[in-house]
Amino acid sequence: MKCDRCNKPATIHLTEIRNGKSLELHLCQQCAAEAGYLQQTHLSMNDMLTEFVKAKTGMSQRDALVCPDCGMKWQEFKETGLLGCPKDYEIFSDQLRGVIENAQRGATHHTGKTPTATVAPEDSVKLRQAELSRLKKDLTDALEHESYEVAAMLRDQIKALEAVPPTH
C-alpha cells in the first residue's frame, strides 16, 4: 500500500474520526510525522490498542467474529489478551497473525518438541473398562461351568488390570 500523500510505501495506518465520520489514513513515516500523527508517544501501547479498538467498533466485521466453540469475540481478546479455546487460533487466524508476529519477533511456526500422547485418555479409560467388564463376564461364565483353573487365571488378570492406576 502506498502513502496517501506521496508515493512511498505506507507504514502508518490510522483511522480518524471527524464529525462522527471515520477516515482511513495510510501514510509513510515522514508524512505521518509532518502531519503530527507521531507525536502522541506518551500514549502507552495499551491505550493505543484501546483507542484503535474503539475507533473500529461497529465498523469492522472482524471485531464481530465469534468462535462457535467457546463464544470468544475478537474484541474480548483485545481487552484481556487471552483467548478462549484452542480453536480460536483458527477462527481468528487473520487477526492473530500480527499479534503473534509482534509478540514472537516475527516467528510464525513452531520448531520445538511435539506431544508424546498416542492414546487419548478418554479412550484408554474406555478400553480398560471394556476389557474389565469382558473379563468379569468370562469369570462368571467360568464359575458357572466350574472351570476353576480358567476362573483363577481370569481373576488374576482382573486383579492386575484393577491395580493399574486409572487411565494407564
Binding site: 484452542p86 510464525t108 513452531h110 500422547a117 487419548a120
Partner: peptide, 11 residues
C-alpha cells in the same frame, strides 16, 4: 502420555 495437549503443527 495420558493427557491430550492442545497442539497444532504450525503453532
Amino acid at each position: 502420555q495420558h493427557l491430550r495437549y492442545a497442539f497444532s503443527d504450525r503453532f
